[in-house]
Design a protein around this nucleic acid. Sequence first.
DNA 1: GCCGTTTTCGGCCCGACTGTTTTCAGTCG
Length: 597
Amino acid sequence: MQPQATTGLVRRLREGTPRLSAMARANDAVAELFQEYADLIAITGGEAFRARVYEKAARAVAGYPADVSTLDRKGLEGIPNVGGSTAAKIAEYLGTGRIEAVEKLRGRIPAGVRELTRIPGLGPKRAVQLYEQLGVGSLADLVTAIEDGRVAGLRGFGARAVTNLQRGIELLAASGGRVLISEAAEVAAEIVGLLAAVPGCMRVEPAGSLRRMRETIGDVDILAASDDPEPLMETFAGLPLVADVIVRGPTKTSIRTAAGLQVDLRVVPPAAWGAALQYFTGSQAHNIRVRERAVRAGLTLSEYGLFRADDGELIASGTEEEVYRRLDLPWIPPVLREDRGEVRAALRGELPELIRVEDILGDLHTHTDLTDGVSSLEEMLAAARERGYRYYAVTDHAKDLPMQRMTDAKMLAQRDRLRELAGDGGMVLLHGTELNIGPDGGVDWDAGFLAGFDLCVASVHSHFGQDQATMTRRLIRACENPYVTVIGHPTTRLINRRPAIDADWDAVFQAAAQTGTAMEINAFPDRLDLGDELIMRAKARGVRFAIDTDAHSTVHLGLLRYGVGTAGRGWLTARDVINAWPLEELRAFIDAKRRAG
DNA sequence: GCCGTTTTCGGCCCGACTGTTTTCAGTCG
């Protein structure tokens, strides 16, 4: 490796991937500290279960709807997996901005050692070994140590291990890891289609975070059922899209595509399908929760089935429903399997009846070629009718975005055209617009002109860098506009490309709930905005939602499923979503706000 | 350090694969 290349590599490693959001909530800082504490415990050789305790606490705090800074000691202990000691640490952080126990461990090991564990294949044990035996305290140190040949020859580091380490470092620098759900879904669909044709393949489906519909995917998990795994393994490892075979065993093979995406294939006997699908869907945290429950019932759960612990007799394995049922649980939808209280809710019979794609009766945020869309009004309407929508809103950009060249006259002409097309085919046409929320919270037109629209979406398109107070006022003022029905892509993040704007989201959601303004769940795969955690926080404040595609072409209407998946991850039902309501109810929602204003 | 539909104390999910190991530790999911 050339020295110059090394420098660039290390710089990219150090910069890492941009944070997806800049949401300042004490919960995020606390979760971050607890995760670091868990890592440090593992690195310094602390007891494994203590590391797990803080990992669980980190997740619980990050996903907790209430801001921890508003909770007293008792409230803190009410968070799942937070007991007296952990609550004390949160209180300590809120009071002093630091946690002494974390500082202490930080003092024992350089931050760079924790950084090392981001390299695939390098865990806490070997990272600390590199530090203690070679003084490697950063990624840069490690690159140098490998080049100097000091790593080869360490106990446990053969030639093979060093090669893998080098590859891991390059991989970390190149990808930073996660891809959009749409990219992963396309790769998965292609592979599933090819494997389904292999003789002996009984079933094959994507599992993992793709089945749980996480907003980004680290690697694609595919599960297949067959009594004869070898032909599947053979086919998989030989697919044209394979750039690299990482792992190749009798029942598990991992490859990397030319684009750098890792895909894992697991093959299980058909009789174990349900247990295996449950296991490989995860999340890991959900599985641990479910397996602990099995252990307490004198059972043990693996990808091969649910067994009695004493004599090993098989209790269930054929379907997921059966596995959950034998643990006295209803089937839990994959989008909920994140250990965010779904097992507890399931036990109480309180699982939400999640919104489905077929519940959506119309799209409320779409474009045409009048502004930046590529399909004509007629083409968009035909595609919408094809989907069976009851109603459909056309919401081209308004006049404050100069690049869109919108004028009052063009907008009114579009409205006339829309009215002419109405009544044909039973789908009700709504004329709307996507307003621009200006830096001060104002929008493109005055009340007189806005009153002519059936509904308005309003979104931030510029001045992303405003401070939190200004941005919060801006969004609240938009909510207070009587003609704004939906706030479009509220955080304006672009996944892997642009961070979220900084706002006090709890204050914004409060205003949205009070004014009867819906928050959009923009279904575009690089937006998914709001995301699942903010959806949960908004729902807790009584906010309503609109799941829209923001389609700029007829093919984009099909992206709706990603928005619905994200809504499900936020525990939403059809009642929470205004475009799952009959038209009369939707109109009543719009009119109530206009009258109140 | 947290937690309980047999527990307020004594446990803490489970298996595949790799590499280097002469019987298994480390890592991953």
